[in-house]
Nucleic acid binder design. Structure first.
Lengths: 354, 354
DNA sequence: TTGAAAGCGCTAACAG
DNA sequence: CTGTTAGCGCTTTCAA
């Protein structure tokens, strides 16, 4: 690798002049000098050494990205959106960490990041408290937290970008109620998280406020283990079998996410239930493949692109202006009706279809 | 951030002693000194500055990972496997780049990586030639190329880790032939790549070597555009409609990957064809969700974990031993039969079922 | 308008 | 066994 020395030598100038063109301070150079330097850079294929730069300036154009697992298509999608935007819009690179929903791992990665001079991290976590994150924040790392509503704990200094999960839960349940369902279920893996709690809250609220009495139950499946996110569909499958075996089984099911919904539909089918004729299903996330399942999955869309961009923008802002106060940005989900919802088997459709 | 100085001061030793424990040269320390240093490190929450270390040693414990897009579930899965293994096994971090199958982007990212002191990159590309990569290699970057068979071009110095795609194509076609299919199709997006070519080669070979005459055709859909990988399913959908409209339509279809297969099944279904009763489908990649489609998708499994680990191991080796010669590692695919394949509508199953 | 020089935090001789 | 020291490549005053 050529160094700034090599460039200076070739262009017959001092290294500070080279540094000046590198940092856009061209007003301090005579045009022809600048030109000569540019050519030398070209010729040598010189790339400034970021490590040296970081050492000097203390800043690194890199954002840390912590996700449960990119093996989960939804997180893969967000990761792609984040990385591409960070790169094209701000020239920042992304360091990827799969946390597998492991708190200790998460904390360690946050620490490691600081070691690399990474000044901001985007955290797609699932833990309710942010204790382990606050250490990192105290050390000066800017953290952008995804999908955890603020105010749950002391989270001064942490940015929050989140979808209105209460609304998401409400939207899903209401859609089912509008189709005449009166026995509803919300299904998810075992274990409460902030975002799950809020989805449930919205789900229950819609049921509670319905004109006619609606039963609404929450089913927890197996917990996600170690290499977790590939299990989501399995958990859904088991839940599908379980629901099918139930007496007075729910006719309308809301799932915590689409991957689990795909598993659920498979499990239901394996147990002899048809979707949507016997059981209607509403997923969440509206991942790309949701449109291609059989039947196509009705889902609650989270505005992935805008949220991804907001997170990156915040991360960059917190790096360039460390004193900027943390913000809370809420985004609205939207129902995407497809074919996995129909009126329940016995019931007559109530007049009030959506 | 605490520095090595702070630690030395607190432990009342010189910085070189601290450096020695940091780098595991504990045999040069008295146990109690080492112990004191450890405590100081703990107390201060000290993390060595990687930039400074890199500047000194020229090495950085980071691997570059270039994928078309983690929004494609298959690449998301590989990315997760790679990152987790690199981290837990070797303590290496991963810098992620979504190339969107854009050659210029790919080249630029490779350059950037060098600027960060990243000494090895894993490249999941789709371009046949490796011209743009060779510049990077010449500059000293170790490149591990995925799923591109060696020998296609001058690729000295580039490691290759790939699945036997010819065998994958053969396996898929043979499975269909064994079920009695005599009109086969291979479907994919427009545009040839090395891995697609090899899959087709195997597909055609199986058809050509069948005991009875088998027609085998290749269908190219629309090309993947810019933000491409989320389109794969769309392309499959269109292809499904197109196949369904065909007179003497193929009864057995092999798809270049599972995501496209999901789209294909949806398109077929929308056009009134049933899978597998009217059309049998074999996907490739055996992604997690393949087991949960309706019907569950028969697929050709690529050994993702072993391949991911091999790539990371190679990358680390090439960093630690720059003189190690490049290697070519081939992995064998395997058929995973599920329910998307049955005998063709009219035909009697031939005796020779798999 | 250009150049000289002082470190940023760390490693690895080398000297004690 | 422990400490001193010379840079790694770069940015950034400060002088010339």
């Amino acid at each position: 690798m050529a160094t700034i020395q090599d460039v200076a030598r070739l262009a017959k100038v001092s290294i500070s002049s080279v540094s000046n063109v590198l940092n856009g301070r061209t007003e301090r150079l005579r045009p022809d000098t600048a030109e000569r330097i540019q050519q030398a850079i070209q010729l040598l294929g010189y790339r400034p050494n970021q490590a040296a730069r970081q050492l000097k300036t203390g800043k690194m154009p890199v954002i840390g990205l912590l996700v449960p697992s990119t093996a989960n298509p939804f997180y893969g999608q967000i990761a792609a959106a984040l990385e591409s935007y960070a790169q094209t819009r701000h020239g920042y690179r992304v360091m990827l960490c799969n946390t597998h929903r492991d708190r200790a791992l998460e904390a360690r990665m946050l620490e490691d990041l600081s070691g690399f001079g990474v000044a901001a991290a985007i955290l797609l976590s699932s833990f309710d408290d942010e204790r382990h994150v606050e250490d990192a924040v105290a050390r000066g790392l800017a953290v952008i937290s995804y999908d955890r509503a603020p105010g749950t704990a002391g989270n001064r200094g942490i940015d929050h970008v989140y979808a209105d999960n209460v609304e998401a839960g409400r939207l899903a349940a209401q859609h089912l109620i509008d189709h005449g369902h009166r026995r509803l279920a919300f299904v998810m893996p075992a274990g409460r998280t902030n975002s799950r709690d809020r989805k449930i809250q919205g789900f229950l609220r819609a049921a509670g406020q319905a004109a006619e009495p609606v039963s609404a139950q929450v089913y927890e499946g197996r917990a996600i283990t170690a290499y977790g996110d590939s299990e989501l569909a399995d958990i859904g499958y088991e839940l599908g079998q379980r629901l099918a075996a139930e007496t007075a089984a729910p006719t309308g099911v809301v799932t915590v996410n689409d991957t689990l919904a795909m598993g659920l539909m498979a499990g239901l089918r394996a147990a002899g239930k048809r979707v949507p004729e016997d059981v209607s299903v509403v997923g969440m996330d509206n991942m790309v493949l949701a449109a291609f399942t059989s039947p196509p999955l009705t889902s609650i869309a989270m505005p992935v692109e805008p949220m991804a961009q907001a997170m990156v923008d915040r991360a960059v802002l917190r790096i360039t202006e460390p004193d900027a106060p943390a913000e809370q940005l809420r985004f609205d989900p939207a129902l995407v009706p497809r074919e996995s919802v129909s009126p329940p088997p016995a019931a007559q459709p109530s007049g009030s279809r959506a």
